[in-house]
Design a protein around this nucleic acid. Structure first.
Length: 323
DNA sequence: AATATCTGCAACCGCCGCACG
DNA sequence: TCGTGCGGCGGTTGCAGATAT
């Protein structure tokens, strides 16, 4: 049988007293929290372990910053929310000394309302007029697409930069004039994501797409196939036209992108989720994760793309993350 | 000054995934 | 393989203080 609820065991609920706080802090500072379940008894508290853990992580922990959120923090929350949705713990990892609960509260009571007032849907981060037309059922798709866009912007920017430097012995223009470039240059990421979006919008069968393997779960094409099967835009083709070892630069750039990612391969047992690329076996879940990490690792350095988004938030009437 | 309404936030609830026996 | 316990997460609630009427 399950455990009895805390109220049935005579445990206290509601706001914490300063005496309870003092006991909890004293215990954790001396012994560490260890097992939260056994902590209340050892610390002399009439609370359940869960309540103690929440009180500690959201309030008593010494490395917590309290008070008003800075503009920088607000921007970061909006950017990350556009990327990650309501994944508050993930967002919190990028805001030092802020808890997920605090960020969630701030979003719900402040930022969400502000975006709504500006005519921006706080779920999709798109203008109302765009979301009104359709597609509540596509919200999940859209979130995934946004996430993938951001992932791929990081990867492709690095790769394109790498090859441009090899060819021209100088940094590409979009690396030296980010704002202009990110809005005008058609990077391969956009082609990938347009393809992804196209699959979504037309609801065609994945098997209709030449070369696409069909995953066990057909609700979403595997990341590896999207990267593998999408052709570069004409602009990008013009920029990289050299041949090397029988592969054009587009092929090389994809290879390079794969090579920059560290994908653990020894964890999964589901063969349908494994893909071979350049003699390497990738598990698609991990490829997706690796791409995300690739993005997040350099997130702070990639201000241009997100300042572009925030500029659009500022000019809210035309804000849209759709290409 | 009294009352109603709004706002911010701490805390709780229910669910999920993982580890373990 | 299944059941159980635990930690973690996101959604929601309820209260206290602030503000409006």
């Amino acid at each position: 049988m399950g455990r009895s609820p805390s109220f049935e065991r005579g445990l206290k609920k509601g706001p914490w007293t300063s005496e309870e706080d003092r006991k909890l802090v004293a215990y954790v500072e001396e012994h560490g929290h260890g097992s939260w379940r056994s902590l209340p008894i050892k610390a002399g508290l009439q609370r359940c372990g869960k309540s103690c853990r929440l009180r500690w992580t959201n309030y008593l922990r010494p490395d917590i910053k309290r008070g008003k959120f800075s503009l920088q923090e607000e921007e970061t929350i909006i950017q990350l929310h556009a990327l990650l949705g309501n994944r508050w713990s993930a967002i919190a990892t990028h805001l030092p000394k802020r808890t997920d609960n605090e960020i969630k509260n701030y979003w719900n009571t402040n930022l969400k309302k502000r975006l709504t007032k500006m005519g921006i849907d706080p779920i999709t981060h798109k203008s109302r007029t765009a979301t009104d037309t359709n597609l509540s059922h596509m919200t999940q798709w859209e979130n995934a697409r946004l996430e993938a866009e951001a992932r791929f912007v990081r990867g492709s920017t690095n790769v394109v930069s790498h090859f441009y430097q090899q060819i021209h012995c100088t940094s590409p223009p979009f690396m030296t004039n980010n704002k202009l470039a990110m809005s005008s240059l058609s990077l391969p990421c956009l082609d990938v994501l347009k393809a992804w979006q196209g699959i979504n919008i037309t609801s065609c069968k994945l098997s209709d797409l030449s070369g696409l393997q069909t995953p066990k779960d057909q609700t979403m094409p595997p990341m590896v196939n999207l990267i593998e099967n999408v052709e570069p835009s004409s602009l990008y083709k013009d920029m990289i036209t050299t041949e090397d070892h029988g592969m054009n630069s587009w092929e090389i750039s994809k290879t390079s992108l794969f090579n920059t990612l560290e994908c653990p391969q020894d964890k999964g047992t589901d063969d349908q989720n494994l893909f071979e690329v350049n003699d390497m076996i990738y598990q698609d879940d991990y490829l997706t994760e690796a791409l995300t990490n690739h993005l997040v690792k350099d997130f702070e350095d990639d201000k241009s793309y997100w300042s572009n988004i925030l500029d659009k938030v500022g000019n809210n009437s035309s804000f849209s993350t759709v290409f």
